[in-house]
Design a protein around this nucleic acid. Structure first.
Lengths: 214, 214
DNA sequence: ATGCATTCGTGACGTTTTTCACAAATTGGT
DNA sequence: ACCAATTTGTGAAAAACGTCACGAATGCAT
């Protein structure tokens, strides 16, 4: 166990390990070795051990990891034993699609409210979630206990929306607008930029398949 | 100019640079320095110069980069001067939301067809795009000239869908199913795993804001 | 009990990515 | 024509990340 700061690459992999452990637990496996885990994806077993070692000594030499135990540990480390309430800003196609994205429920996130500026939409309900006026964001976010915000508005509004979110005291933000946003250090901002991913495919196709890989 | 293999991190940044150059061009700027570009996001100017140097010497010492020229160069490098036709497998919430995601059009991608296994959906039209039977994928993909596939089905079907896509000869795939997929070397597979990103936020919140950053 | 097979935890090593720092090229003013 | 101010391109240094290899701990068979 080394309690230096943990890289995001490591925590991302923890998510993958946990998913696998959940499957193993469902299958009834009692223990699993790092080598075994590594083979499921094509990872290196030493990396898995190192990732886990950041948080404690969960394994038993000669045995491996106890599936159920490690599962619970990772669930706790990733904070998935806590419920989170999500507010989505932007009730367009993407925002509404996310509203009943089952990945949210699966990971203990609940979409509590949608926000939009369009008067036509305000007051209506999508998948049991009400659409509020974005101008009331701080008030509703507070009343609803929202602790995670999702930005699903056009790029040109994203920075302003982010500032509104931060001003309301929310610390975790997921951004789908295709633009890099500037935020204070104490905010966790995660940008999912589909355009970059698309252009990455485009680059690959332009190079006419000279290089492959993930 | 060094024509070794270029890392994905580099090409991803090219996308960001290009976006910025498009804005600068729209604003009427003639030239821009790497330092100037670097300040817009918070990147290092040397990195920008190195990224660009992978593809040629586009800058002029003492001046910077000619916005319009660099814009065209990057557009070409990223293959954005070519049109691509996209097939989306899975006509659920996500698949249909993606269908009129304007980022596609912006980047010269066009959603040509949707595919689903649900008989209720097959034959209907979403945002001018027809939903076909997924069992006819190879045939339709060929007929429609589809060269990019998007996987928007539940995780348990994703691997099988990928194999179907690969079998039909398509080389570029974007996967939204929250599971790592195995693909051959010659395929470009890009996985966008929202669950991992969510859990990353959860991890941050669990650590109660001890560390921030992007 | 002892030995053998297994598997973790980790220090050492190698690779990749980022940052630094400076020579070389260019412009504009005098 | 020269000097000062810029700003690129790039080798070298630093940092981050991944892999290897091995000592230490454990279980099982004899």
């Amino acid at each position: 166990m080394k309690s230096e700061k943990i890289s995001e690459l490591t925590t991302n992999r923890l998510s993958i390990y946990l998913r696998c452990l959940n499957e193993l637990a469902a299958e009834g496996s009692k223990t699993v070795s790092s080598d075994n885990l590594a083979k499921r994806f094509h990872l290196n077993s030493a990396q898995i051990r190192k990732d886990l070692a950041c948080f404690g000594e969960f394994g038993v030499r000669g045995v491996g990891y106890y599936v159920e135990d490690l599962r619970q540990q990772l669930t706790k480390i990733l904070g998935l034993d806590h419920h989170h309430r999500v507010g989505i800003i932007g009730a367009g196609r993407l925002g509404t699609a996310l509203t009943d994205y089952y990945g949210f429920r699966q990971t203990n996130f609940e979409v509590a409210a949608l926000f939009d500026a369009d008067r036509e939409k305000i007051g209506t309900v999508v998948s049991d979630v009400k659409i509020y006026d974005v101008r009331d964001f701080a008030k509703i976010a507070d009343r609803q206990g929202i602790d995670v915000a999702v930005i699903a508005v056009p790029a040109e509004y994203a920075q302003r929306v982010l500032e509104m979110i931060v001003a309301s005291g929310i610390k975790a933000v997921m951004n789908f607008a295709p633009t890099p946003l500037l935020a204070d250090e104490e905010i966790k901002l995660k940008t999912i930029d589909l355009t970059i991913s698309l252009e990455s495919l485009s680059y690959f196709l332009a190079g006419s398949g000279k290089n492959g890989k993930e």
